[in-house]
Structures are given as C-alpha cells and as structure tokens.
Design a binder for these strands. Structure first.
Lengths: 245, 245
DNA sequence: CAGTATCCTCGAGGATACTG
DNA sequence: CAGTATCCTCGAGGATACTG
C-alpha cells in the first residue's frame, strides 16, 4: 500500500483501493465470490502471491474479514460493512468506465469463462425453474465449452461436464454473448440474427433470458451517449488559483 | 498503465485511474489547478517525471487535453468532458474515504501549504470583499507562514510575503485549521476555544469564514456515523457461486 | 482449500542536471 | 514555465515448488 502523506479522504481511499487488482477483487466479492482460489480464477493474470498480499492489505484496511475455522484455517473472506459500502464506488467507477472507457474489446479480452462467471453471479434464483437446470454454453469463437448448474440455493460454473444431463445448450460467439450481457443487444435479437442459438425444451429456451439480471452497467452503457452529451456542458471550478514563490 | 485483459467497465476505469497519483491529479484538476508545476506543488512527493508520464497517460485516455500555444509549447492542461465527469467517481471515493478510512492524521500529514492550497480552491469569489484582500496564515505547529491574496477574479497562494499590506492575520495550529476545513469544528468554535485566532478589522474577521466553501467531504464526515450504522444492514449478493474443475 | 517459500527479473520511479 | 535525459536503485511481482 502506498502512502500519499496527505490528510484527505480521496487520498486515503486511493491508498486502500489504488493497488493493482484491488478494485477488481472488491468487484468480485461484492458479486458474491468469497474463496481465495475462486477469486484467483475470476481474475486471470493475478498471481497467488499478489492475491494473498492484497487480501492481507484489505483485511488490514478493514474492508474484508477472514472467516476461520476453529483451528485458524481460513475458510474464505467476507466483506465488512466498509467493504459492502464500496458498492457506491464501484457503481460510480463502472458507470464512468462504461460511458467513457469501454470502447471495443481488444483481442483476447472476450474470455468465455469470465463471462460465464459473471452470468453465474447475476442469476436471480427466484426466477429459476424448481430443481436443477443444467446449461451447456458452447462458444464457437474462441472454441470453449462451459456448464452452468443452476439451483435456487446454489449456482456452479463447471469447466468440465458436470455429469448431470444437459437441459439447455447455448451456442454463441463469445462477442455475441458479451453484447447481450452488456445490453448492447437483447437476447431475442441475438437469437433472431443467429448470433446466439438455444437448443432445448421451449419452456427453457423461452425462460433462459429471464434467469439473469445481466450486467449492472448495461444501463450506463445504454445511457452513455446522453451522458457524454450532458458532460460537454459541465463546468469545473473556474476561479484561477495560482501559487507563487 | 496496466491492463487487466478484461472487457469490463470497472476494469477499464481502473486501468486509467488506478496508477499511483492519477486520482489525486484528477482531484486537483477538478479543483481548478491546470499547470504542470502547480500540479507538482499540490502533490508533494510526486516527481516531475512521474507527473509528466501520468499527464501523457491521462491525455491518451482522453481525460485531459493539452492547451498549447501556437509554437507547440504546453500552456497547461484542461479536463475533457470525460475528465469533468470524473467528479462522480471522486465524490463516491472521497465520501467512502471520509466515512471509513480517514481516521486520525498521521505525523507529517498536516502540511500547512496543502491546506492553504485547498482553501484557495474553495474560495467563493462572490462572497469576497471587493478589491484585494490579503490574508496571512500563521501556523504555530508546524511553524509556517503563508499568504492568500484574494480577489474576485483570481486567488493566489504565496509562499513568501506578497508585498501587499496584510489585511487579516489568521493564527492556528495546522491541526486546528484542518479540523475547521473538514467541518469537525466550526470556525466560530475554534476561535472561542483559542485554537484559531483572527487579527484584523472586525468586518473582515466576521466575514472570513464565509469566503470559503471548505471541504466537499465535510458533509460525508459529519454523516459518517449514520452511514456506518446503515452499512451494517447492507447485504451483498448472497447466492453462493462455486467454480468447479 | 488456502496459502507460503524461494529465487529471480525487470521496470517504475527517484535524483540530478539540463533545455527550449 | 513545462518539461526531457540519464543513471541508478530497489521493490513489486512472476515462476515454480512445496505445505498444513
């Protein structure tokens, strides 16, 4: 953790949140991810040592706390009240990013597993069918298969076939499903155009889109042009301040 | 600038804003500071090379633009619409910091010049007396003298005596004036307790407190206990998500 | 599952001096 | 005023292997 040596709320927050990866760790935890290895898998590119160091720093800062068994073994992490209250910072940051900085995906940025992790954490359990529903996600580009095992009590992402019968097969290019996730297209539109295909009983193919709340930033992305327009007229402090000597 | 390799609004924003010093540079610019050397002075500890590198990165990211003279010389920087729109991120971050992370000042964090820079940029020009008002700020601990030259068209912070007659002398320990700045005490209270003294004509001593809007985070700081209380009851996504294989 | 230990590399950035 | 150039250091963090 860096120190800026300033007694200022922004500086203090930046000291805690400004380290590489830290804000993304918080994003994952606000989304419900709580285990060390789970966090590692949701953040491709972070090393175990960096993740461990960041979790220690977040613990010291009072943003997360360690859940331990009697013996002192860590069972995972949970956000403290301070950590849960970071949702506002995430929303402001994500909305700004969606408005001004999202642009087009760079090559390699459309990792199918990340997308499926995000979908898993945007499942609305009360909209799921009762019992277990197994969805196979078949990505064409890049070629990749993943499975979602959906139950009202728990959602699993499986990198291998989970062993259960598959109820619904979703076929898509990764970029098409990212577009749906971020609200750039509706699922219905993507299906009509053939960019996304659903195979399975019609009660499931019809319901599928409703199981997810999709991205929290879809709205910001949709409203981006208006917000960009409005920002043109924003003013900042305009009294010149000079520093002499 | 780091890259996270994720197509995500939060990740994209963090790539732009997450570098050391960057958010504080934006904080200064939203406050009206626009010159390279002025920025350097408002950010003690930043080196000229790091500042130059950050300004280039912010320019590339579309957050600031360079104002140049005909000859290509940079005259300073100005926020773009995207940069002005970062005010929301600053507010969310600063309010969170004020609520959860400000704590007590560490030794050396109560730099008198920083405080006077911040006061200078929170001057409300239309509340100033007409003409020029020169305020001497006499800090007792740490011992330091600074001057504010206040005009409705421009405010200057002077590290040396500006040459003009002084109209008003403010005496204070740095920590007492920081407390006033952040709304922990009112100026009236600080004067009553003797922590702050004002010497000058009573029309100025009575008006002084009204010339400044003080910290934008004073309100967050005042409401911090209630917000901390409310956050105890906040919930996060609670559907367990597991990743298998 | 949740880490630690060790070794090694490389690049961020401090110090200092100089420039149009 | 707004930087750049050069040199050097040190620490962040990747790779790899191991552990209760």
């Amino acid at each position: 953790m860096v120190s800026y040596g300033q007694y200022c709320p922004v500086a203090r927050a930046a000291e805690i949140l400004g380290d590489r990866w830290t804000l993304l760790i918080v994003r994952e935890m606000v989304g419900g991810v709580s285990g060390f290895n789970q966090l590692g898998r949701c953040l491709p590119g972070i090393s175990r040592s960096v993740l461990a160091q960041r979790m220690r720093a977040l613990e010291r800062a009072g943003v997360v706390e360690r859940r331990t068994s009697g013996g002192g073994r860590t069972l995972g992490y949970r956000l403290t009240a301070a950590g849960r209250d970071l949702r506002g910072v995430l929303e402001a940051t994500g909305s700004w990013g969606a408005t001004w900085a999202l642009g087009d995906p760079l090559p390699g940025e459309l990792d199918p597993s990340l997308l499926v992790f995000w979908m898993a954490r945007h499942v609305e359990p009360e909209r799921l069918p009762l019992g277990r529903t197994v969805v196979e996600l078949k990505f064409r580009a890049p070629k990749r298969r993943l499975w979602l095992v959906l139950e009202r009590e728990e959602v699993s992402v499986c990198m291998q076939h989970p062993g259960f019968d598959v109820d619904l097969i979703v076929g898509a290019d990764s970029c098409a499903l990212y577009d749906v996730y971020f609200g750039r297209t509706t699922l219905a539109e993507a299906i009509r155009s053939g960019a996304v295909t659903l195979e399975g009983p019609s009660r499931l193919t019809r319901a599928f889109g409703g199981w997810f709340s999709w991205s929290a930033y879809a709205r910001a992305l949709r409203e981006a042009p208006a917000r960009r327009q409005a920002a043109e007229h924003m003013t900042v402090h305009d009294l010149p301040v000079s520093i002499v000597g």
